[in-house]
Design a protein around this nucleic acid. Structure first.
Length: 488
RNA sequence: GGCGGUAUAGCCAAGUAGCUAAGGCGGCGGUCUGCAAAAUCGCUAUUCGCCGGUGCAAAUCCGGCUGCCGCCUCCA
């Protein structure tokens, strides 16, 4: 059947057919005036899933994600913080990249910044002026919206409806209120580049056209971004690009839905958001990923602790199943591959795909099988879940060990046989290294089971509770106890 | 006002004509256990916002209505 994607342009799910042998993808990334919030991460995860699935389906991909590192808001910030715009931009880029790496988001091949493509931008603007689609006035350059008859075709807006709603403020240089800035003259004290029209800087929309065309060609396959960019940003990109080249710009337009908070869109401008760095303090990356993938990328997601906790509980179910299967062989023929493929091919239906994974987990518990375990692992990898190495609170368990030792000494030293005693001594001589973490926990479990046999439940439960406090869960199965470190 | 999205169980969320309406969370009951915890098993929507229509057959198509969200200004 093959991949089908919802194209905002046609408002339909379409068969995906790339132009060449390499799928070109451009993603509108952040305006790096502030640190990334969960909404930005959702866009990143949506792009990540798209790329993962394309790669899995055998496509080659070249992906770009831009950073708008120069714009009005960043200039404002520069004044406010009395620092350099480059520093602000870079700080936020670093934060974003760090969060993306933690969340196992596949990196784009190129992360262009607007400020690095001034030459290309100037060239493109000049071309638009030459062709009569743009004009210069007072050092500003504007795009003549009415010159492009298809304006509004992406966002399904009627040009005359826009006029009535358009703002009349600050149109001193505009011939028409609909026109938008390609180049903005610099005010004193603002960062600037020299151009044919004097000192200035690029408008917001033009950078994406310049950078995408520079790397992907005049027509490329997929353009992605948040739903809020459809108008005016993407509409303007289309207008500029298609007027400059006379060719179709992007062929598939994919837009992800919002993350909302109390039913309202999470947004920087309103201060109504949760920063990803804060969410990552309380939830592990796999939980956040599951939370996002539980809803199809086009739909709105409500942010709340309740939702995240729900995802955490659901992820625990997955984790519990795969625990103990760490060194599984790779499979090339997973179970339910057809169903999984159909779900993903259907506009990246991750909720459905996850349903298939949970079905397998259920089957795996009913009738343990290597095939099921390898299949689950195979799918988790496609969906971008990280293979987790849980943190090992070495110092904590050492502390517990000493507590237990003291208690036993005080109360019932005779309970422990010499073997346990020797093991203890051995452990105490070990260096503080995570390598020995499981050994120490196992010693504690051994002592606990000895205590349980002797019906010294008080102390046995003390060990269990202290470990639980440090996120180490104990599972008793007869006289064999295992443990699992639970993070967040 | 124009345009777009959305409405499925206590909550979240798949499903776009036809076997018993996926899956997750929660809840209830059981198993396991020294007791817990965890895990696991079972149960948990005769019904898909409302009204009407077309079909042998509709959550799914058509018409109307209502609610919620968003875009039309910077925004992932």
């Amino acid at each position: 059947m093959g991949l089908r994607l919802f194209n905002t342009f046609s408002a339909k799910v379409e068969d995906f057919k790339p132009i060449g042998d390499r799928v070109g993808i451009y993603t509108c990334g952040l305006t790096v005036q502030g640190p990334p919030h969960l909404g930005h991460i959702r866009a990143a995860v949506s792009r990540d899933i798209l790329i993962r699935w394309l790669l899995h389906s055998g496509y080659k991909v070249i992906a770009l994600e831009n950073f708008t590192d120069i714009d009005d808001k960043i200039i404002e910030k520069q004044k406010e913080l009395n620092t350099d715009w480059r520093i602000i931009a870079q700080e936020n880029i670093d934060k974003y990249m760090k969060a993306c790496d933690e969340l196992n988001i596949i990196r784009a091949n190129i992360y262009p910044k607007a400020s690095q493509y001034i030459e290309e931008i100037i060239e493109l603007v000049s071309k638009l002026i030459e062709k009569g689609f743009a004009y210069e006035k007072g050092g500003d350059v504007y795009f003549k919206v009415r010159q492009f008859p298809d304006y509004g075709k992406l966002s399904k807006k009627n040009i005359d409806d826009l006029v009535s709603g358009a703002r009349c403020a600050s149109t001193e240089h505009k011939e028409d209120p609909l026109d938008f800035a390609l180049w903005k003259a610099a005010k004193s004290g603002e960062p600037y580049w020299d151009s044919l029209w004097g000192k200035g800087r690029p408008g917001w929309h033009i950078e994406c056209s310049a950078m995408s065309m520079h790397h992907l060609g005049e027509t490329f396959d997929i353009h992605t971004g948040g739903e809020d960019l459809i108008f005016p940003h993407h509409e303007n990109e289309i207008a500029q690009s298609e007027c400059a080249t006379g060719k179709k710009f992007a062929r598939y337009w994919l837009h992800n839905g919002w993350v909302t908070l109390g039913g309202e869109k999470m947004a920087k401008s309103t201060g109504h958001y949760f920063l990803i760095e804060d969410v990552l303090k309380d939830y592990r990356p796999n939980t956040i990923r599951l939370y996002l993938l539980k809803t199809q990328y086009r739909h709105q997601i409500e942010f709340s602790r309740e939702r995240l906790n729900e995802a955490k509980a659901a992820y625990l179910r997955i984790q519990t199943y795969i625990h103990g299967f760490e060194n599984l062989p790779e499979t090339t023929e997973p179970l339910k591959l057809k169903e999984f493929t159909e779900a993903m091919d259907d506009d990246l239906n991750t909720p459905k795909a996850l349903g298939i994974v949970f079905d397998l987990i259920k089957q795996g518990y009913e009738k343990p099988s290597l095939d099921i375990a390898t299949s689950i692992k195979y799918y988790l990898k496609i969906l971008g879940f990280v293979e987790e190495v849980p943190e090992q609170p070495f110092a904590d368990v050492m502390e517990i060990l000493h507590e237990v030792k003291a208690k036993i000494k005080d109360e019932k030293s005779g309970l422990l046989d010499n073997a346990a005693q020797e093991l203890w001594n051995e452990l105490e001589n070990m260096k503080s290294s995570d390598e020995f973490f499981p050994n120490i926990v196992n010693v504690l479990l051994g002592i606990r089971n000895r205590l349980r046999k002797e019906k010294e439940y008080g102390l046995a439960d003390f060990i269990r509770e202290r470990l639980a406090q440090k996120g180490i869960q104990i599972f008793d199965k007869g006289d064999v106890s295992t443990f699992r470190v639970e993070a967040k």
